[in-house]
């Protein structure tokens, strides 16, 4: 009888189960712990700097006083610009890949491209943006150049998330629309896209968080150390939270004195990115309600 073998002995089996579970729990706890440590460290050190003026005023006295309003504005503008760049391109590419493309060399090349693009270090995107948008296209260091660079950076994320969302839309929706005399594009636009949109938007919002946090791409293409006013056109430079931290911590003449500002800025950036992720989770949960497929 196989059940009499040692491997089936209940005590031994339970011990193994316990060990495995313990290990899995420990890894989970460790991951959560690291996350909590980072957030806690930033929050502990940065909380003191946070105040209404810090969020609503311009920096003063060589950044040692005043607020970070222009950096918050700049980050939001750049992230939005990145989204405006990546969403049309990304959604379009995803629709092509998921709905139209037949397996073949072209699709393989596109997929490979998307995959590799997501592995390119962000500093390389920065240099690319500098060479193409800032220099060749003559946009200068500007919101436009920075948005386009960040947009390309998050493009693979948007494509991958959107394609996945489209693929999860039941084939039966497409069949139903086609059988009622819809053209392929009508079926996609009227039935498939509305059904896939929650997933596509979730991907886009998560990508937005990534764009908001990036530093290297905008160092070369969009950000400046200090501005006196909100930008009036997309050809102007802006401050950004990430590069503001970098500047305070590396370029300033009074690095030690600006430490509270550095931590405060980091905390704002962290809150912004986590807030966006939270948004994505809420959007997904809300839109998933009432969907059963």
């Amino acid at each position: 009888m196989l059940a009499a073998r040692r491997g089936f002995e209940p005590r031994r089996r339970r011990r193994r189960e316990f060990t495995a579970l313990l290990f899995i729990r420990l890894t989970g706890a460790f991951t959560a712990g690291v996350m909590a440590l980072v957030v806690g460290f930033i929050a502990f050190n940065g909380a003191g700097a946070i105040s209404v003026p810090f969020l609503t005023e311009y920096p003063r006295d060589a950044m040692t006083a005043g607020g970070i309003l222009p950096a918050i504005e700049g980050t939001l503008i750049l992230a939005l610009g990145a989204l405006l760049t990546a969403v049309p391109l990304g959604f379009g590419a995803a629709v092509y890949l998921a709905e139209y493309a037949r397996p073949g060399p072209l699709v393989s090349v596109i997929r490979l491209g998307v995959l590799n693009l997501s592995g390119v270090p962000s500093v390389v995107f920065g240099l690319f943006g500098l060479a193409l948008f800032v220099k060749t296209f003559g946009f200068g260091r500007s919101i436009l150049a920075g948005s386009l660079t960040l947009g390309l950076l998050i493009l693979p994320t948007v494509v991958a998330a959107s394609e996945e969302a489209l693929r999860q839309t039941p084939q039966s929706f497409r069949e139903a629309a086609l059988a009622l005399g819809a053209s392929r594009w009508q079926a996609i636009r009227q039935v498939v896209l509305p059904a896939a949109l929650p997933g596509m938007l979730t991907g886009a919002i998560l990508a937005l968080g990534r764009a908001a946090g990036e530093t290297a791409p905008i160092v070369f293409t969009a950000s400046c150390a200090y501005t006196l006013a909100s930008p009036g056109s997309v050809f102007q430079e802006v401050m950004a939270l990430s590069t503001h931290i970098l500047n305070l911590a590396t370029n300033g003449t009074r690095i030690e004195e600006t430490l509270p500002q550095q931590f405060g800025t980091a905390l704002v950036l962290l809150a912004l990115v986590l807030g966006l992720s939270l948004c994505a989770i809420i959007v997904r949960a809300k839109l998933r309600k009432g969907r059963r497929w």
Binding site: S172, F173, A176, A179, G181, V191
Partner: peptide, 19 residues
């Protein structure tokens, strides 16, 4: 084909109403 499908209706194995 689009024209043909408008004249020839189809009902599938699993109910597939749109959401």
């Amino acid at each position: 084909p689009v024209d043909i499908r408008r004249k020839v209706g189809m009902v599938f194995q699993r109910p597939n109403p749109f959401p």
